[in-house]
Each structure stands twice: as structure tokens, then as C-alpha cells.
């Protein structure tokens, strides 16, 4: 047996660049994970379908605009519809502290604010991923 953690990194919504998402992607790779990188402008439907086909253990969502609340929640909702809520959903990007409780209530397990060391994110994933 030779299990690897598989992570889908996605940036839903129409805004901006994916620099932050790339940093996380590389950190996950360097921690020995397999990162499925999907690029910009993904809809929640695309992200969830990708995660199912790739049998992902983790979905990492990145957002730079105010649209995160709706988009992140929708991803969690779709996962529940597909009986796939065992996939660990985490978020990052420019997300005001005030928005975090609502996101966590929607099913995002953890939201990382800008400046969180990547090491902390990796450790969180390793500790919380469903084995």
C-alpha cells in the first residue's frame, strides 16, 4: 500500500490571478501530495465533478473577491448532494475574518487568511484528511 493525499486546487469565480493558489499547489506537491490543478474560472459544479473523478481527498478553494461566500458554500452543498462530504474542503485568499464563521457553517472546514505559513496548511491537511 502506498497511499498519497490527492488535492484539487481550484479558483472559482471570475476575478484575477491564481498566484496564491499556485503557491499552495507547490507546497502540497513538495509535501508529497498529488495536486490536481484546474486553473482559473471554475464553476462550483466543475470543481465538484473534478474532485469526484479524481477521487480527491481535499478541495482547496482560493478566492480574491467577495464572491467567495456564495461559491464556497455552493461547492459544499454540491458535495453533500453527491454524498461526498467526506472530502475535506479548505479555503484561502482574501477573506475577511467576519466572513469565516458563515463559511465554516456552510461546510468549509478551515479558512486560512493571507500570510498563513504554508507549513501550517500542510499540517492541517495531513491531520484532518480522511484516511
Amino acid at each position: 500500500m502506498n497511499k498519497k493525499i490527492r488535492v484539487v486546487i481550484a479558483k472559482p469565480g471570475l476575478d484575477g490571478h491564481d498566484r496564491g493558489a499556485k503557491v499552495i499547489a507547490r507546497a502540497c506537491r513538495d509535501a508529497g501530495m498529488e495536486v490536481i490543478y484546474t486553473g482559473l474560472r471554475q464553476t462550483p459544479e466543475q470543481i465538484v465533478e473534478t474532485a469526484l473523478q479524481e477521487d480527491a481527498d481535499v478541495i482547496g478553494l482560493s478566492s480574491l473577491s467577495g464572491a467567495h461566500e456564495h461559491l464556497f458554500s455552493r461547492v459544499c452543498e454540491l458535495l453533500r448532494e453527491k454524498n461526498a462530504e467526506d472530502i475535506l474542503v479548505i479555503g484561502g485568499g482574501v477573506i475577511p475574518e467576519d466572513d469565516i464563521p458563515a463559511l465554516e457553517k456552510a461546510g468549509v472546514k478551515k479558512v486560512f487568511t493571507p500570510g498563513t505559513p504554508t507549513k501550517e496548511i500542510i499540517e492541517y491537511i495531513k491531520a484532518n484528511v480522511k484516511k
Binding site: 498519497k4 499547489a25 507547490r26 502540497c28 506537491r29 513538495d30 509535501a31 508529497g32 501530495m33 498529488e34 495536486v35 490536481i36 490543478y37 484546474t38 486553473g39 473534478t50
Partner: peptide, 11 residues
């Protein structure tokens, strides 16, 4: 070196 990978073809 790390056993990790970035799989980017889906882009």
C-alpha cells in the same frame, strides 16, 4: 525527491 506531483492537464 518528494513523491509529490502537480497534475495540470485538466487546465
Amino acid at each position: 525527491f518528494t513523491g509529490g506531483a502537480i497534475l495540470g492537464d485538466r487546465i
